[in-house]
Design a binder for these strands. Structure first.
Lengths: 183, 183
DNA sequence: TGCATAAAATGACGATCGTAATTATAATTG
DNA sequence: CAATTATAATTACGATCGTCATTTTATGCA
């Protein structure tokens, strides 16, 4: 079969958006092409027409998730604003539309070179965004280090808060990390 | 077939040890029963005789990895000692025998209740160990919070350092986190 | 010591995975 | 406007996944 060019582009985008969400929710190796295409209302083979392989889709989905999340960043937001949102219960409980770094970090090691490069570029972008909002009195190199340490704390706290079974402990992790970051 | 009781117990342990390592290296959903039993020198079905299901094996492997790692903790070690080892290049480059929290955290959410409970218990144990080594002048509650924040930073830095493709950035992440933790 | 029983690894099974050949229909061109 | 071409989704395929029935043999008891 063949459908109109616009419809095909729309279908492609639906698969991409579904992948972006489902991979964050269930993990990259935890979601099959079946689930990905079904979520977009198509049969599993259509993925191959649009992306060539699951590996390629992963690369695009990683880039798409990071780019979409980057567009949500407010230019006038402070680091404290970001920390508060990041370490909130809402963010913890909605990984599908949450931080791609926290959702995908553990699986990146076994992904394709292209996917890892896009992930790495995203981390660098995030570090730059944070660094530019650090106290301007400290020197540049030190600001970058602070940004890296902050991002590590954010990601670590979020993944641990999501991993543990005990709601109280989960809340404690988020709160302790907020305090540690001076939020 | 059936083999001697001792031999069976030894086989069971080999599967468990292989699972403990492979799941940390490739992820839980990234390793099949094939690879797990083959690494122990048996056919894939033997897993079922010993553990009943992959889910059960996951539970035992998570507990085993955490317990084994806990036994490595030196009673006379300081928090700084631990931070230095944890955020080393050696630890980053050998996930198979490294921290189970960092290796498995992102996948715990979609695991069985039993597996998550063992993971959670492990986190609590680690927090207790860290907390007991925090500055005794600060009050207990605050020490626990410091321990939680420290663990978050450690895990976050390690998973990010492993995820990124750029060796320099990876080293920078570890160093920045060490500095941030005052190590 | 011989028979019954329990148990552990093997091998066979259905389900699901990712891929490629097939089919059907827009888009292109004479 | 008709014939060709290009392409997107369907469908069929081999490989691999996790599970269970079978087989073989160690163990317990008479």
């Amino acid at each position: 079969m063949r459908i109109s060019k616009e419809k095909a582009a729309e279908n492609r985008d639906r698969i991409l958006k579904a992948a972006s969400r489902l991979m964050r929710e269930r993990g990259i190796s935890g979601v099959g092409v079946d689930a990905l295409t079904e979520a977009a209302g198509m049969t599993h083979g259509s993925l191959y027409s649009q992306f060539g392989s699951k590996e390629r889709l992963v690369e695009e989905a990683v880039a798409d998730a990071i780019a979409a999340k980057g567009r949500e960043l407010r230019e006038d937001a402070t680091v404290d604003d970001y920390v508060s949102e990041y370490l909130s219960a809402e963010h913890r409980d909605d990984p599908g539309s949450g931080c791609p770094f926290a959702a995908l970090c553990c699986e990146m090691r076994q992904q394709s070179k292209g996917a890892r490069e896009r992930f790495t570029a995203g981390v660098k972008g995030m570090v730059g965004w944070l660094s530019s909002r650090m106290d301007k009195e400290t020197k540049l190199k030190r600001r970058d280090d602070q940004a890296l340490a902050t991002l590590s704390s954010l990601v670590g706290a979020l993944v641990l808060a999501r991993a543990v079974n005990d709601p109280k402990l989960s809340d404690d992790i988020l709160r302790a990390a907020r305090n540690g970051l001076g939020g």
